[in-house]
Write a protein that binds this DNA or RNA. Sequence first.
DNA 1: TAGATTGTTAATCGATTAACAATC
DNA 2: TAGATTGTTAATCGATTAACAATC
Lengths: 201, 201
Amino acid sequence: MSELSPATVARLPRYLRLLEEAENGRTVSSDVLAEATGVTAANVRRDVAAMGFQGTRGVGYSAVDLADRIRRELGIDKRRKVGIVGAGNLGTALAGYSGVARRGFDVTAVYDVDPKRIGQKVGGTEIRDMAGVAGDSADGLFDMAVLAVPAPSAQTVANQLVSAGIKSILNFAPARIEVPEGVALRQVDLSYELQILSYYG
Amino acid sequence: MSELSPATVARLPRYLRLLEEAENGRTVSSDVLAEATGVTAANVRRDVAAMGFQGTRGVGYSAVDLADRIRRELGIDKRRKVGIVGAGNLGTALAGYSGVARRGFDVTAVYDVDPKRIGQKVGGTEIRDMAGVAGDSADGLFDMAVLAVPAPSAQTVANQLVSAGIKSILNFAPARIEVPEGVALRQVDLSYELQILSYYG
DNA sequence: TAGATTGTTAATCGATTAACAATC
DNA sequence: TAGATTGTTAATCGATTAACAATC
C-alpha cells in the first residue's frame, strides 16, 4: 500500500486544489503543478510517482485521474464524517468553513456542554449534548474529531474520543494534548504559529 | 546574527513552553527537554548550540537564561503587537485564546466591517472599523496581523496590510493568499489539515 | 520527425542521530 | 575522584534537485 513520505503527503492537498480547478478532460504538466504550488517540477513528478500514478510522456497528467488518485491516497475518495467538539466561537467558525464539504468532509455532528447551545443549529447541524460524544463516535456518527473546546477540557475530551475508538483528532484548542500510539493527531496552536512567524518577520 | 534552520525554529516554542514551567533558578538537561518535546537529546543540544547558547557540562542549561535566549532569538523579548482582522466567530475566538498574551503578544487592535460590531469589545479590545486597518498599521498600532476574514476578502486585506508595511501575516481565512518576497506568511488551513490527517488516520 | 514532457538516476543538500571526548 | 551532561564529530538518513534518456 501507501508509504508516502510526510513531505509528499503535505503537498498532495496543494496539487489536488489545482487539479480540481482544471477543466474536465484537461491534462496538466508537472511544470504547471510546480509553478502553482511552489515546488520544483522534479519534486512533483517524484510525488506523483510515489503514488504509483503514471502520466503520459510528452503530454502530462490527466487532471481528473490524478485528482482521483490523490483523493484515494489521502483516504477521501469516500466521504469522511467529521465531528466538531465545542460550539463556541471557534467551533462555530470551523463548522462554517467553506470548502470543507467540497473536499470530502461532512460535518455530521457538533457538540457543546452549554444547555442553551444544545439544540441550536450551526451550519445546518444541530448541536448535541457533549455528554453523548463518546457514545455517538462509538456508534459511527463521525470518524474524525476536531477539538474546539477550552484548553482545560481538551485532554479529557481527547481521552473520551480515543476510548470511543476515534483514530483521527485535529486539535484547535489552545493546549497540547497527548494521544496513544496509533491515533493520528494534528495540533494547530495560535501561540506557536505567532512565535514562529515572529522569527521570520 | 541568526541563521536558524526552519526545523530548529519550529522546535523553539516547544522548548520555551517547558522552560517557562521550570522553577526559577532551575537547571534543565537536554535529556529532560528532549523527553518533554519528543525529540532526541542530541537534537536539543544541536538546536541550543545553533543559537550560540552554552550550558554547563555535567549540569545542564539554566532554564531562565535559555528561555530568555529563545525569546530573543524568536524576536519576542520585546512584546509584539498583534492586530486581528475580522471579528466574526473566528476572530473572536483567536482574540480570546489563552496563553497568547502570556507569550509576548498583545492584541492591540481588532477590526470588522460590520457597523454593528464596530465599537463592541472583544477580549478587552474595542472593535475598530476595517476601513482604518491600513492607516492604523502604518501608524504602528500593530506589527503582526492575523487574518480571520471571509475567504473572498483575504487577498484584498492582505494587500492592504502589505502596502501599509506589515511584514508578518498569519492567515486563518479559508483561502490561500500571496504576499511579496520579504513578507513573512503562515497559513492555517482547516481543509488541508483534515486532508493530511485523513491520510494518517 | 520535432517538440514536449515523463520517469528515473545520480548528485546534492539539509536534518537527525549515535557516540564520545571534554569538563563541570 | 566518580557521575553527569555538554559540545561536537562522523555517520546516517531523508528529501530535493538537476539532468537526461525514454517515449508520447
